[in-house]
Design a binder for these strands. Structure first.
Lengths: 152, 152
DNA sequence: CTCGGATAGTTGAACCCTCAATCAGACTGT
DNA sequence: ACAGTCTGATTGAGGGTTCAACTATCCGAG
């Protein structure tokens, strides 16, 4: 193995910062969301995606790819959402292997009730702490890293 | 509840970017680390902290706070590390309720073997994709958000 | 001294995620 | 038609995380 370049001081600071940011922010956002709405972040993301999809429904595989989670995980998650009446599965007519995840009215209502609080929480804990310039760079830098990670 | 300010376009872009960044980067870093060293990110962090502590040991509570995880989670984690011989627990003399988590030689060796590959992975997937300016802003912005989250 | 409350840490159950195995339906070439 | 392979999705086991309950010890007030 080659001698690796270590991280310089600025990089180490950014790295430690990133780690702390993610842990703290995820924790707080999840906590706020859970307390205010009874939804987890995982629940919330699925409901948002379904609510934005045509007919409020989407194929399982497509939904899993969009949310960047495994099909297995989505399947388990959908089972839980289904048990709570927030969504349901409907078989696909044209491809009988396939299934659509469908947002129920109850799921839509739960999302509508949760969204304002969640947005407020994201705003308060994240964007209210940042300058417009920092927001822009966060977007740019995320895109750059994602691009690197996405092109195999 | 007050009318919440929604996110503007730049904020929404940054938010979606952040979400994708975290999911993808965590996934890839964990995967690389696991494959190359057999350690999970959670294992790795505990070992790093112990390796940097005086005597390569630290009180359970202090370690949990530093790593920003619950005492319960640390306790389970230490049980697993202990079973693999990477660390062990030693009772505290002056406070018989307390315990030190201690890094074993085997744990130190495992960390030393894992570190270069992990650093290379962080560099490749994250810092090689960013400009020095972006790295600086990432550090700044993380500090700002953490500060907001930390002052109750 | 000793009672009550705070603190250090552990435990077990419930829950969630991952991974490999599986199933059923669709496509492809012969 | 049909064997082989690919794809969409589910399942179950195993392992990690959370939450509340618990044990044991320490400390301060009376």
């Amino acid at each position: 193995m080659d001698e690796p370049r270590w991280l310089d001081a600025e990089e180490m600071r950014a790295w430690r910062g990133y780690l702390g940011l993610v842990r703290l922010l995820d924790y707080r956002l999840n906590r706020d969301l859970q307390e205010e709405s009874g939804l987890t972040a995982a629940d919330y993301e699925i409901l948002v995606r379904l609510s934005e999809a045509p007919q409020r429904q989407q194929r399982m595989t497509e939904l899993a790819e969009g949310a960047m989670i495994s099909k297995s995980r989505l399947s388990h998650q959908m089972t839980r959402l289904e048990n709570r009446g927030l969504a349901c599965r409907v078989g696909c007519q044209t491809d009988r292997r396939g299934a659509f995840a469908v947002l129920s009215d109850k799921g839509f209502d739960a999302l509508a009730a949760a969204a304002p609080g969640h947005v407020a929480s994201v705003r308060r804990h994240l964007f209210d702490q940042l300058t417009p310039e920092q927001v822009k760079v966060l977007g740019d830098l995320s895109d750059a890293v994602i691009a690197g990670l996405t092109r195999d």
